[in-house]
Structures are given as structure tokens and as C-alpha cells.
């Protein structure tokens, strides 16, 4: 077993354990942190496949931003696990068969002749000076430019929808207008009154 294979097994083992702990951890914050660990190890696996751009993108986007906001929300929630578990046996008749179906489907696809490891050609070793990032950029912005733009528009719609759904004006909110604050003049705030001195 060479170094790369050993590394693959270490990363995969941690990935599987972390993913299991995501669903079994009692504390939701621990679960989120295990998910971060799972992402990290998945990115390590992608690095082993020489997909360095995707691997670093996974860390920058998911670990660096998405999971931070996730953690932010989960930390503020007061989650009662007992209440969450109440419906477990009631929903099992639906959840159980779906889980079994998904496992069967995955086994069927991954072991099929058309998609098994033997069916796919071994990718050629990249030439020296081959840049993953450049290849990806060229593919996205030339061959797949329409699907790419379409995906961006869908994301934009989702983004605007999220903002619109949450945009509520609060009446008791004391809003500041920085432009107004900067433009303030002395005469707006101070009134100089000339008063004759008074004598008793």
C-alpha cells in the first residue's frame, strides 16, 4: 500500500465516522461541527483525485461561509432533542422504506456495468503545466456558458426571493441615514440666541 492509498483510507474513514456522527450527535452544534469535518475530509479526497480547484472551492464556500451561517443559526436555537424524537416511530413506516429504496438505487447504479469502476476508462495523466482551474474556467465559459448562466439566474432568483420574504419594515426601528448625518450643519443643531443681560 503506497502513501496515497493509505491517505485515501484515513480520509475516508474519518469522513464516514464524521458523517455518522452528524446524524447521531446529541448536541446540534456538535453535529454541525462534524459536518464541517466531513466536508474537510471530502475535500482531501478530491485533492487526491487532483481536482484541487473543486477541493479548495468546497472549503472556501461550504466550510468558510455556508457552515459558518449554519452554525450561527444552530447556536441561537434552543433545540429540545426529546421533542424532536417524539415523532420518530410514527414516521418510520414512511422513512424506513425510502431509506432502503435509496440504498438499493445507489448499489444498483454503482455496481452496474455502465457505471462500475471497471466500465469507466482510466483518465489519462494530465500533462505537465496542466491547470485544473484554467480547464474548468474554459469549459464553463465556452462550451457550457448557457447552462452556467441559467444556473446563476436561478441562484439569483432564490437570493432575491429570500431577501423579499424576510424584508419587513419595523415601525419602532430607529433607522439612521449616514448621508444625512454627515451633511448636518451647525445651524441645524445649535440656535444662538442673543439675550440682553438681566438685572435683579
Amino acid at each position: 500500500m503506497d502513501f496515497k492509498t493509505a491517505l485515501f483510507y484515513i480520509l475516508s474513514a474519518i469522513l464516514v465516522i464524521a458523517a455518522l456522527r452528524v446524524v447521531t450527535a446529541r448536541n446540534p452544534v456538535h453535529a454541525v461541527l462534524f459536518l464541517v469535518l466531513a466536508f474537510f475530509n471530502a475535500s482531501g479526497l478530491w485533492l487526491l483525485l487532483q481536482a484541487e480547484f473543486l477541493a479548495i472551492a468546497l472549503i472556501a464556500v461550504y466550510v468558510g461561509s455556508v457552515m459558518v451561517l449554519f452554525l450561527f443559526v444552530v447556536m441561537m436555537l434552543d433545540i429540545n432533542l426529546e421533542r424532536l424524537r417524539q415523532g420518530f416511530w410514527g414516521n418510520l413506516w414512511l422513512g424506513g422504506p425510502i431509506a432502503v429504496l435509496m440504498v438499493v438505487e445507489m448499489v444498483a447504479v454503482l455496481s452496474a456495468r455502465s457505471f462500475g469502476p471497471e466500465a469507466l476508462p482510466v483518465p489519462a495523466a494530465p500533462a505537465a503545466g496542466y491547470s485544473n482551474t484554467k480547464a474548468l474556467g474554459t469549459a464553463i465559459y465556452t462550451d457550457y456558458v448557457y447552462p452556467f448562466e441559467l444556473a446563476s439566474v436561478i441562484l439569483l432568483v432564490a437570493l432575491i426571493a429570500a431577501v423579499v420574504l424576510n424584508l419587513r419594515q419595523r415601525r419602532d426601528n430607529k433607522q439612521l441615514n449616514p448621508a444625512e448625518q454627515i451633511a448636518i450643519q451647525r445651524k441645524d443643531r445649535v440656535r444662538i440666541v442673543s439675550m440682553p443681560s438681566e438685572k435683579e
Binding site: 461541527l33 480547484f53 479548495i56 472549503i59 466550510v63 468558510g64 450561527f72 485544473n132 482551474t133
Partner: peptide, 23 residues
């Protein structure tokens, strides 16, 4: 090759120290 992107990913990880410590 992806040095700049690597730096960006690593600096974005630094925030976990603050959040985990705070919580």
C-alpha cells in the same frame, strides 16, 4: 497553481476559532 484560492480558503477558516470559543 491555486495558491491565491488556497489562501482565501484558509483565512475563511479562521472564523471557526472565534465562533467555537465563544459558544
Amino acid at each position: 497553481d491555486a495558491g491565491l484560492f488556497y489562501v482565501l480558503a484558509m483565512t475563511s477558516m479562521g472564523i471557526y476559532g472565534v465562533i467555537i470559543a465563544g459558544w
